[in-house]
Write a protein that binds this DNA or RNA. Sequence first.
DNA 1: TATTGTTATACTCTATAACTATA
DNA 2: TATAGTTATAGAGTATAACAATA
Lengths: 161, 161
Amino acid sequence: MNTTIPNALAAAAACPSEGSINTEFLQSLVGFNARMASLHLIDTFMHAVAEHGLRVVDFSILSVVGHNAGITSSQLCACLNLLPPNLVAKVRSLEKKGWLQRQPHPLDGRAHGLHLTEAGQTLIAQAEAEVQDGEAKALAHLSSKEQAQLRQLLRRVYQRS
Amino acid sequence: MNTTIPNALAAAAACPSEGSINTEFLQSLVGFNARMASLHLIDTFMHAVAEHGLRVVDFSILSVVGHNAGITSSQLCACLNLLPPNLVAKVRSLEKKGWLQRQPHPLDGRAHGLHLTEAGQTLIAQAEAEVQDGEAKALAHLSSKEQAQLRQLLRRVYQRS
DNA sequence: TATTGTTATACTCTATAACTATA
DNA sequence: TATAGTTATAGAGTATAACAATA
């Protein structure tokens, strides 16, 4: 007998259609959802900071230095989850662009204190406002209570756990 | 007059100490917190899957293919946020290791349906259990209600926003 | 014409080992 | 001996343009 049509139908049934893809397991993982959400959000403000010639990490560095004048590289690495060798080039390029300065550390001859220049302060003030604005738009469908809840839960995931 | 000591004190005061670093601005961003949380969580189960010779993305690929036999590369790319050229080498290496198979697509001559081998099914079943277990331990300090809340909020961030 | 999968390629990110200057 | 910063380097991740085969 002719089994061509039934087999074809069975084969077609075995092909997940566009909307029917099951990602149930991955979606059950907080880690997967956190990664997808961070990619989505970071993508939104990557374009904003890119207009200033900044990468996302550059933005984070300038922001932390701006709020912590004199911070050292190793302290920056600790709070941004960076490795020291990978920070060197970043600092050098931000210095070259006139936004960051390294000054001798007053208490430790091995270290350098990081400081923003005036141009750096102007830049980061504007960039922070833009980033804040961009995130607000990307999260407009969540209430501010939900946003606060989300921030707090995420912080508890990675702090002293 | 001697201003050495006061200046040194002023300089020392300008050096943020270990615990006093202000990351208030970054912590106010959901995107920053999501990224830190995802890095933390993914790090915990990266070691688990690495013992099977898998990267995190390899794990995601095998898991999705396992739950969606016959899925195409472009569908995989869409749901895992990958670019087609970067999937090619991944699929090839998983095929070479005997966990994945490409079969001619029954309805579209351009495409291939992806399927797990028996070895792939065994592997992913074990890896999924290990990953689930690892995440449960990493999130043990959050109640299951809080974990569910977190998952749901994160999903709303990146889905149809 | 549009789409699937692919090659080639470049750039960025991440990680490790080893060195120097100072503590 | 330990730590801050650095160099060199390797490997993984991410991005774009261009092409062949098929729809």
